[in-house]
Amino acid sequence: MTRLRLGLLLLGLLAGGALAAPLLGLWLGHDSGAPDLFNRYAAPSAAHPLGTDDLGRDLLTRLLEGARVSLAVGIATALAAALIGTAAGILAAWRGGFVEALIMRLADGLLALPALPLLVVLAAVDPAVIGLPRGEAVSDMARIIIILTLFGWVGVARLARAAALSVLARDHIRAARALGVTEARLLRRHVLPALAAPVSVATALAVAGAILAESTLSFLGLGIAPPAPSWGNMLANAQELVFSAPMAAVWPGLAILAAVAGCTLVADGLRAR
């Protein structure tokens, strides 16, 4: 339980900061997007509690705005993966036969594939091909969420199928079926609740994985394009001058560390319950 609380606390702080980012900008009296060339890599001060970045922008404000992007990518990916994965898992367990074979072979196939190289191929595909505008932060985010979901649903689907199978095999389910309870009600009242625990564990881990994957894609130049800040692109941007201005790299790194650790702790906590 303490792990769950610690994890929730970490994530709560980050999410609260992300939501408060505009307020902080107002309070400190500057706009995070405006470069100030006379103030590059400034040391921490009252106006800039964490100092400034390569264009003289306030690091703390950027970090909190980056939290919105990074957490949004992480949570959206995890939710999409959870949704698709749960649906696929239940469908496989409930229908069985050909549908099950199809879904599970697809899952096995995806699991056997080299994820990162394929992420690279997918990330480099022209967004215009799938109808997204090129070069906009939103379409970068959508692109990353889509490709991470493509790989993310598999883990959830396997867990969901296993859990659903064990529920469907129980005696009281067979009894309910014999009594003429509809399949829809059966799935809603008995199968779904049993899936809550394993799926929420997998979702928490998927958030962590998506945040890390976003930072890796940023390192490879395939992440979210500036000027929109994300933890990944802040970290990738700061590495060039890491010897002269190490703090510009340390803070986004710590933010990723905190977010991923928070998710992992939540997952552990949920699992232990």
Partner: peptide
Amino acid sequence: TAGNRSREQVQQV
């Protein structure tokens, strides 16, 4: 050109 750090900096200025 996306990914060119120096140009992306200049662009924002």
